[in-house]
């Protein structure tokens, strides 16, 4: 599995062959507060880079989940639908959101490394 990459919309992504696993970052969960509902994209759905698929509802607000790359959704993480608070506890581990089949590997080039993302967050705290 690849090192984690990050988007400006605060998603993280790892790659294993053709499949990417996507979740939201710890920083995102800190901004959202307590997550109470998660709506995931349907399996088999084709999604475009920067489009949105799914929603996170926290006690404060509803936030769209953005898709960092184009491709087809292959699996959603039902455990976070059943237990949304897991996203606050382990956002960059067990509480991944969905897996997808990567359409264009070149989409990955626009994503940030951990160091670049941390810098991005420091410069754009909100």
């Amino acid at each position: 599995m690849s090192e984690k990459k990050f988007s400006k919309q605060h998603e993280w992504l790892t790659v294993d062959g053709e499949i990417a696993t996507i979740g939201i970052t710890k920083h995102a969960t800190e901004m959202l507060g307590d997550i109470v509902f998660v709506e995931l994209p349907e399996k088999g759905k084709n999604v475009e880079k920067d489009g949105h698929a799914g929603v996170v509802e926290s006690t404060k607000a509803a936030s769209d989940i953005y898709i960092p790359i184009s491709g087809e959704i292959t699996e959603g993480n039902q455990s976070i639908v059943d237990n949304p608070s897991a996203v606050n506890k382990d956002p960059e581990g067990g509480a991944w959101f969905f897996k997808m089949k990567i359409k264009n590997k070149s989409d990955l080039d626009s994503l940030m490394s951990k160091a670049d993302y941390d810098k991005f967050v420091t410069e754009n705290p909100n």
């Binding site: 507060g33 307590d34 109470v36 404060k60 608070s85 606050n88």
Partner: peptide
């Protein structure tokens, strides 16, 4: 204050 360290649910 909208919340403290514990967060809204706690």
């Amino acid at each position: 204050p909208i919340q403290y360290k514990d967060g809204i649910v706690k």
